[in-house]
Design a protein around this nucleic acid. Structure first.
Lengths: 266, 266
DNA sequence: GATGTTGGTTCAAATAATGAACCATGAGAT
DNA sequence: ATCTCATGGTTCATTATTTGAACCAACATC
């Protein structure tokens, strides 16, 4: 393991739960020698990636990160940022990933990634614009948005299209509450037979849901644990996706997605 | 020089002028061996600090920066971020630095830093609330804000306070244009005899000026080059200051502040 | 004042970084 | 078609940097 990797790895220790860490804290968390850790911390501090509180001598994330992140935001177009994140997610999940953005009252496709080699795959297809509550993405969006939107979605003329059963408002509201509790939405065969999916919302700079990211997979694949596994992967990347699109995940959602990242001392 | 510092130093090469660099580019810029540079780039990429374009194989700043910057923004209060930046600036400049924020039609003090050891110093003092066009800070603010504000400032009742001469609108407008061209505002003895200052605007998240940062110094100090030197220091840190307060510097101002950071190949 | 923290330093030993030489590929130029 | 130059990337013996046990000083607790 390169020293560079070791040093940079230290930055990941600074999480929401513990944003300030002293030398001993870091030493305990990574298990390396104190002298080594100290020199890494100093090197990071001199580069501006950490800064040290003059009073408590604790370290926290430094200004260089803000500077470089700003540089990236200015120079790397959103498309490429999103591509790199969902590309990685698709590789991890082994399934089709796609991102839709709200336009009017519909979620329209903006990006997708398909980096896997299963013989059976869900083919991507912009299959019309189904009503919001009929897709995992739509439900993910509704569950994390102001209440009034559901009424508008229910008033959607496509609600009564042939083949789609008229939805029950109560039932939907119950499901949306469950989604808000779980952190992700799901769909099993409801829109296209044999196709299931899980979805999470994407937030904008003001922490409002404005898009969604979903993973679609053949319902049969992988048995019972599949949905949970994919949902977990999706939620783990939730922050990266939102940030790639220039947004900020509300703290309470972040807790839902990346719980117990605490590294309590033993 | 530690390997960590060498590797992290590579990140600074990615600037607005050249956001994508190939292995050879980086190698030329830093002058180190190609193999070394390559391994550093790979290490940075694996940690997410860089990412490589699959097509061109060029490197660009990576998603980990956005993630960590977000973490910092959430966990480190603005006060401390600002303090660390202007503290450094005060050390570099050897003079009093302070930041004011617009409140109503006045710039009120929010932070200051005074880390120097000159025997003669400008003492900090919240000397009332002078009209905007009488201070370097106020002029810096006006010069980078929508035009209508000048009228409001001129209508300020304090304009006709004893001792302050009634300002000429034409004259002020000319000066504001000059400030917008130079990138910074200045004041020499106009408000307090023996005290001069230079100032720049601070921008919010929507790139609107909402505060200012200024350096105050005894007019006599350091001869003729002083103003230029301090202004240069101030503008160099302009981006850091705005970003520490959660804002974004408009690109055209950024060009003014950090020009020709290009590192052209010889 | 004994004891356990904390942040930080030292210096011989060990490991990881280094760089000259080496590939493979692609773009122009002849 | 081939020669050349540039590119990104790799190898491996040499070297220099990183490493960590022991050590120090300051502070808090018992």
């Amino acid at each position: 393991m390169s020293t560079i990797a070791k040093a940079l790895g230290l930055l990941d220790l600074f999480c929401d739960a513990q944003p300030r860490l002293g030398l001993s804290d870091v030493q305990r968390l990574v298990g390396r020698d104190k002298a080594t850790v100290h020199r890494h911390l100093v090197a990071l501090e001199q580069a501006g990636f950490l800064e040290q509180d003059a009073g408590t001598r604790a370290y926290r994330l430094g200004p260089a990160l803000t500077r470089l992140a700003g540089m990236r935001a200015r120079t790397v177009p959103e498309v490429e940022m999103v591509r790199s994140v969902i590309g990685g997610l698709s590789r991890e999940a082994g399934e089709l990933v796609h991102i839709s953005r709200l336009q009017g009252f519909d979620l329209v496709h903006v990006h997708h990634a398909e980096e896997h080699d299963h013989p059976v795959r869900v083919s991507f297809d912009a299959f019309g614009l189904p009503p919001l509550f009929a897709t995992a993405s739509g439900k993910a969006y509704l569950a994390f948005s102001p209440g009034g939107l559901l009424d508008l979605a229910l008033a959607d003329p496509r609600t009564s299209l042939p083949g789609t059963s008229v939805p029950d408002r109560r039932e939907i509201e119950t499901e949306l509450k469950q989604i808000a509790r779980l952190g992700y939405a799901r769909n099993r065969d409801t829109l296209r037979l044999g196709v299931s999916s899980v979805a999470i919302p994407v937030f904008d700079g003001a922490s409002r849901a404005f898009a969604t990211c979903s993973i679609a997979y053949p319902t049969g694949r992988g048995g019972k644990g599949t949905e949970a596994r994919l949902a977990r992967l999706l939620m783990q990347r939730g922050q990266d996706i939102t940030e790639a699109m220039g947004g900020v995940v509300p703290p309470q959602i972040l807790d839902l997605w990346t719980p117990s990242r605490e590294r309590a001392a033993s």
